[in-house]
């Protein structure tokens, strides 16, 4: 058993020195952003070498527009948008994660918007990056998160007449009934 504890410690020490963690925006840039726009960033998390901004949803469009061009950030490429269902009992229940990447500074950043179950509306960022279009459609399709201002918010993976949102935790793995495409 003592061996195992030792190994556990080794793992702990290894975790702190995990390689290939992504570089994040500099602290100065983040501080400048926070001092300039106090409301935009609610909380900053640092974990596993990644930086996460928790953003109130009404500011998501503004902060994305800002981060896309602001010096020190230059997040010109939206890598991914990904919804998360934290479970029915959790409140806020939904998260929308925006993974940003810069093709000039090569750093990464995650923006996180928290949503309550009764009001799953987020402003669309497809006006900032065109690639957001399909990502938002996918999140809408699978989680039912509505992106306000999206030019073409339709289901993308599941059929148009599909009932429910498949990646929500209360949606059973095998669906409610055998679905037929015909």
């Amino acid at each position: 058993m003592s061996q195992d504890i030792e190994r556990q410690e080794q793992i702990e020490t290894a975790r702190s020195t995990t390689e290939s963690s992504y570089s994040a925006p500099t602290t100065e840039a983040i501080n400048a952003l926070r001092s300039e726009h106090q409301d935009w960033v609610g909380e900053i998390k640092e974990a596993f070498g990644e930086t996460t901004f928790v953003v109130p949803r009404e500011y998501i469009f503004a902060i994305c527009t800002h981060l896309k061009t602001a010096p020190g950030f230059e997040f010109n490429l939206l890598a991914d948008i990904c919804g998360v269902d934290r479970g029915q009992e959790e409140e806020p229940r939904f998260e929308v994660n925006y993974h940003l990447f810069s093709t000039t500074k090569f750093h990464r950043l995650r923006l996180k918007v928290l949503l309550n179950e009764d009001d799953v509306h987020v402003p669309s960022v497809s006006g900032v990056w065109r690639t957001a279009n399909w990502h938002e459609r996918e999140t809408f399709d699978l989680f039912g998160v509505v992106f306000d201002g999206h030019p073409d918010l339709r289901r993308i993976l599941l059929p148009d007449d599909w009932q429910g949102h498949a990646l929500r935790k209360d949606f059973p793995l095998r669906g409610y009934e055998p679905y037929s495409l015909t």
């Binding site: 290939s20 992504y22 010109n76 490429l77 939206l78 890598a79 093709t103 090569f106 990464r108 990056w129 065109r130 690639t131």
Partner: peptide, 26 residues
């Protein structure tokens, strides 16, 4: 970049971003 192209498709447009180079792993 705006359309989120990555990999060879992006490098075909003259943006030399390769994650093996800019965010090396393994």
């Amino acid at each position: 970049i705006d359309l989120g192209l990555t990999g060879p498709s992006l490098r075909g447009s003259g943006v030399g971003v390769d994650l093996r180079r800019v965010n090396p792993y393994s």
